[in-house]
Nucleic acid binder design. Structure first.
Length: 514
RNA sequence: GACUCGGUAGCUCAGCCGGUAGAGCAACGGCCUUUUAAGCCGUGGGUCCUGGGUUCGAAUCCCAGCCGGGUCACCA
């Protein structure tokens, strides 16, 4: 058995004592709720006659003063103070409920239901005078105790990232601002759905397990299907499936879902992350830029109340229209290099001067991409569209209608980070085949991240896909921006972690010895 | 992957010029019927991340490993 701490032993003793008194520490029947803590406080402040209220939540603090006590109860909307007085809780002769159950056997962390009237204390705090109290779930582990003083200063904050991410449930209990992040995340996603649905675009689900992975450049996770005896890949992108649906005749489709990329992890990368992908027929990337402006204005207003947000000390305004620059203009403006007239050797030299070490096999497009990342990207704080990318980097976008060697693509940059990526989609099946065959050659030459040739996707395109604008937008990054968080782990409920090493004296070991 | 910082009580941390551990909160016992970082008196609680090494003696010094943070690299 895992060695229990003194506090855990104490709580288990209380649990047994309660059972002996005939109190079920985990009763099945629940508790009728009349209000949330937030509703009680708001309505009482406005002078409402609340009468008796009934609420439930977790004990977060206890201040016992003999025959009366104050309790801080936390529910999903906030905290409220309870006043538990012996003779109000136990009007008769039997004071067991107060003296024994409440004072001795309840702890911080226990979940209780209470009923009583609302009043204001001497100091004016809205408080529930408890007439009825019931244990709903006993907590066997002590919580980290976070205290906030009169000036609002937080003491002993629970901040260790390892503990917070591994035990997110504890983080959510004791850190209200963390709960808020995930409420906002849900609002962001809900508002995107609302916006798309109102335009008649169809939300779809496409396979996560794919026999051929494509639509992006990344190493996949591989798994195995036993009945079929084939390897399957966790999708790195759903792009090729959504395009099949445009071939099928839907004129607007979108999917919000997890993608999986088997690459490094850091504060901006998690192996699984949430991407919005959407495709609309008979549109091009110019239209898409306007749509994204409109969408982001809507989402920011719906979730934050304004188009203006604060991110890492910058004030960022999502009100459109956003600045637009072609990639070559942007590089000229920020670095002085005119890549359009530069030969590959000159690009190589320019990169070396900037401290970038080129690798053999780099295409012209790769050099340009590197130059861009080093010289331009960090400066793009306000939402900015960078347009017209080198063709080599973008096998699924349509060739530029007037510029040789470029494709009709834009990326949206905010706070120096890529937020969205969009194309006028390539719907010429012959061109698409050539470009994917080029990718296949790069794979054969050892580029693990070049795309696989998806014959069924090409077959679909051969039936004819309408001209289409497509968009990918990182939901995690958008959430980071709208919550002023700088690590992806802060906007994922359960970020990927290395497993905890089982302790030598583990619980399972004990089980085996029993 | 490289470098770097960290891992000590349930939590937040101190101790780290080597002499086998401390504080606050939490817990336990007591007092207290409007407190709010409640207060007062008393008490208990530790594989000092793991494994080696140096030493009469290691939380402390050295080596290796594990986990996490940061920076860089890789990576649309």
């Amino acid at each position: 058995m895992r060695k229990l701490s003194d506090q855990e032993i104490e709580r288990r003793k209380s649990l047994e004592a309660l059972k002996e008194m005939g109190i079920d520490p985990y009763p099945p029947e629940g508790w009728q709720l009349s209000h949330t803590s937030e509703e009680i406080k708001a309505q009482f402040r406005q002078g409402a006659e609340l009468g008796e209220v009934s609420l439930a939540g977790r004990i977060m603090a206890r201040r016992i003063m003999g025959k009366a006590s104050f309790v801080v109860l936390q529910d999903h909307r906030g905290k409220i103070q309870l006043y538990v007085a012996r003779d109000i809780l136990c009007p008769g002769e039997d004071k067991t409920l107060y003296n024994e159950v409440f004072k001795k056997y309840l702890d911080i962390g226990d979940i209780i239901g209470v009923r009583g009237e609302v009043f204001a204390t001497r100091t004016g705090e809205t408080t529930v005078r408890v007439k009825e109290l019931k244990l709903l779930a006993k907590s066997l582990r002590p919580l980290p105790i976070v205290k906030v003083d009169a000036e609002g200063k937080v003491h002993d904050a629970f901040t260790d990232p390892e503990l917070r991410y591994r035990q997110r449930y504890v983080d959510l209990i004791v850190n209200p601002h963390v709960r808020e992040i995930f409420i906002r995340r849900a609002k962001i996603i809900a508002s995107i759905r609302k916006y798309f649905d109102s335009r008649g675009w169809l939300e779809v689900e496409t396979p996560i397990l794919q026999p051929v992975y494509g639509g992006a450049s990344a190493r996949p996770f591989i798994t195995h299907h036993h009945a079929l005896d084939i390897d399957l890949y966790l999708r790195i992108s759903n792009e090729l499936y959504l395009k099949r649906l445009l071939v099928g005749g839907y004129e607007g489709v979108y999917e919000i879902g997890k993608m999986f990329r088997n690459e490094g992890m850091d504060r901006t990368h998690n192996p699984e992350f949430t991407l919005l992908e959407m495709y609309v027929a008979y549109r091009d990337y110019h239209w898409m830029m306007e749509m994204v402006e409109d969408l982001l204005e809507y989402v920011t207003t719906q979730t934050t109340g304004s188009t203006t947000i604060s991110y890492g000390g910058h004030t960022i305004d999502f009100k459109g229209p956003y600045k637009r620059m072609s990639m070559s203009e942007a590089i000229r403006q920020y670095s002085g290099y005119d890549i359009r007239s530069m030969r590959t050797e000159e690009l190589d030299q320019a990169c070396r001067q900037l401290g970038i070490a080129p690798e053999k096999g780099w295409t012209r497009g790769k050099y340009i991409d590197e130059l861009f990342e080093a010289t331009v990207q960090p400066h793009l704080i306000q939402p900015t569209y960078i347009t017209d990318y080198p063709i080599e980097l973008t096998p699924l976008a349509k060739k530029h209608r007037s510029e040789e060697g470029l494709v009709e693509r834009f990326e949206l940059f905010v706070a120096g980070k890529e937020l969205a990526n969009a194309y006028t989609e390539l719907n010429d099946p012959i061109d698409q085949r050539q470009r994917l065959e080029e990718q296949a050659r790069q794979r054969a030459a050892g580029d693990e991240e070049a795309m696989q040739l998806d014959e069924d996707f090409l077959r679909a395109l051969e039936y004819g896909m309408p001209p289409t604008a497509g968009l990918g937008l990182g939901i995690d990054r958008l959430t980071m921006l709208l919550t002023d968080q700088h690590a992806i782990q802060e906007v994922l409920l359960f970020p990927q972690m290395k497993p905890e090493r089982p302790h030598p004296k583990s619980e399972t070991e004990h089980a085996n010895n029993q």
